[in-house]
Lab assay of single mutants.
Amino acid sequence: ELSWTAEAEKMLGKVPFFVRKKVRKNTDNYAREIGEPVVTADVFRKAKEHLG
């Protein structure tokens, strides 16, 4: 699991709890794919757009 900024964690907190774990995993995987060592708010937004 990658490191997350406080802002990205806050955004994740707005995701319904029953899918939060999956969203975190998918976002981590997306960040790795694009070469990001940390999940930022920008990476979170891009993952959301990319993953739907």
Rank of each mutant, 00 (worst) to 15 (best):
K25Y: 13
V39L: 01
E36G: 02
F44T: 02
T27P: 00
F44C: 02
V23I: 10
A8W: 00
L51V: 09
I34P: 00
A31W: 01
F17W: 14
L12V: 03
A8P: 00
K46V: 05
A31P: 00
H50M: 11
T27K: 02
E33K: 10
R45K: 11
V39C: 01
R45I: 12
N29A: 14
G35C: 06
K21A: 15
A31H: 00
I34H: 14
V23E: 03
H50G: 07
E7F: 04
K48F: 14
S3P: 15
W4L: 01
N29Y: 08
A6G: 08
I34C: 09
Y30N: 01
H50C: 08
E9C: 10
P16Y: 05
I34T: 08
T5N: 05
R20C: 04
A47P: 01
V19F: 14
G35T: 03
V38Q: 08
T40Y: 01
A41Q: 06
F18I: 09
Y30Q: 01
L12C: 02
E9N: 06
H50A: 13
E1D: 11
L51W: 15
A31T: 03
V43D: 01
E33R: 10
I34K: 08
K48R: 15
K25C: 11
V23Q: 04
V43I: 12
A8E: 00
G35W: 03
V23G: 01
T5L: 03
E7V: 05
E36F: 07
N29T: 10
G52E: 12
P37S: 13
V23S: 03
S3N: 10
K10L: 13
V38T: 07
V38N: 05
G52C: 15
V15Q: 05
L12A: 02
W4N: 01
K25M: 14
P16I: 04
P16V: 03
L51E: 07
D42N: 06
L12T: 00
I34V: 09
N26A: 15
K46P: 02
F18E: 14
K48E: 10
W4K: 01
E7G: 06
T40W: 01
K10D: 11
R32A: 06
E33H: 10
A47S: 06
A8C: 02
K22R: 12
R45Q: 12
A41F: 04
L51P: 06
V43L: 08
P37Y: 11
T27H: 02
M11F: 05
A6Q: 10
E7H: 05
H50S: 09
E1L: 10
V38S: 05
E49F: 10
E33P: 00
A47F: 12
D42V: 06
R32V: 07
A41K: 07
V23M: 08
F18Y: 14
A31I: 01
